[in-house]
Amino acid sequence: MTFSPKLEEKFAKMLQAYPEGRKRSAVVPMLIYAQDEVGAVTPELIDEVARRCEVPPLQVDEVVGYYSMLHRKPMGKYHVQVCTNISCLLVGGMELYEHASKKLGIGHKQVTSDGQFSLEEVECMGACSWAPAVEINYDFYHHITPEKLDQLIDGLRKAH
């Protein structure tokens, strides 16, 4: 398995960051960056990361199930993550999540049939003082109202 030249360069640097014989340390970052490019943590990706980090595939497989940002199945092109943890909850986070669910017609960790959007009710993402917050892929959006969310989603749809 090979990745884009940019990612290959990143991985080459990444493996240099850890001391001799500690390539296993790159497992988690490598998985998440590769997932961004591959779309999901596939069995082939597990084997590839295992090979590069010089560990048995089982040790990579264990990690995949542990971290909530790693997915074995592809999420949408735009992964909409709505926080409903207490700070957001108090200012309409739950309603925002329900609104997003209705708007997209999908539930937690589901993907729209065109593969464009997926939705996840997530735990605190560190935007408590600017709640309610949404993260789409890796972009943060603060003080989000249902209307603003509609605009965001519609904008992304159009961009597509």
Partner: peptide, 20 residues
Amino acid sequence: VGALGVSNRGVISEIVPNHH
């Protein structure tokens, strides 16, 4: 041998075999 591991976390943590 190391053929068994643990996957997932929390209450759905599960023992897993080495070939999925």
